[in-house]
Design a protein around this nucleic acid. Sequence first.
DNA 1: AGTTTCTATAATCATATACTTATATAAGAA
DNA 2: TTCTTATATAAGTATATGATTATAGAAACT
Lengths: 126, 126
Amino acid sequence: MKKLTSVFQLLSDETRLRIILLLAQDELCVCELSKNLGVSQPTISKNLTKLKDLDLVIAVRREKFISYRLKTENYILAYTVDEILKNIEVYPQLVLDQKQLVDNRGSLIQCCSKNKENVNKGIKND
Amino acid sequence: MKKLTSVFQLLSDETRLRIILLLAQDELCVCELSKNLGVSQPTISKNLTKLKDLDLVIAVRREKFISYRLKTENYILAYTVDEILKNIEVYPQLVLDQKQLVDNRGSLIQCCSKNKENVNKGIKND
DNA sequence: AGTTTCTATAATCATATACTTATATAAGAA
DNA sequence: TTCTTATATAAGTATATGATTATAGAAACT
């Protein structure tokens, strides 16, 4: 049952759920995730590695960037994402994350170093 | 998202999954779970309390015993149990647990103190 | 080559988790 | 009431987890 319990373990962390729900919208690189979620680069990177180790995402290098895409083969992950998206208004933090993603689209030519203005400030007790 | 992540957290532990899958078969008391799963009474009790705190099970006192019943309102729990049961042969430990439950039926008049013979010995790397 | 940008990893720390042993509580039986 | 049975909880320990800071590696640009 190790695989099963490990998947649940990954889904039990708010930061990882936020990453997953953004990746459900689009393939994104580490720095885009970091900026849109307002979470440090090492934290994003580490969590993506965990997701990749369980084969829930795949990494593709695109020139300077490494882009991560959500995989849909795992039924628990797929079901969870579907159900959350159906009722996303229940999770204000996730709604804000998605909004940030839309607002920042295209403004990430200089992905991480410059353009520090539009970072996600987060929501308490979501 | 606290409720959501907490549910996943509870599902991420093998002992709790085993408890849940036995309760999916029938309402059971602490000592029956302890004996059928080969897990200590305090461990069962503590995990049942956690499940109860998130409203995933309900406790009913029946004379000397306290019987626990799985609730079905939580969609993640319900889906998880359904999917596991559909492919239960993938999880030998769970198959063994279910077998223990059937084999021990009715033999638990003296639930915990006596009748130590048929305890579940467990399976490695399930 | 040297610099910048993007990503990964290591070290550290604080907190959370899960189990064991021992003990307390609660209910029924003698 | 005293004893037994069933359950809950507390204390202690070992391990796991998640974040931060600092640093290393990898690719593109000057």
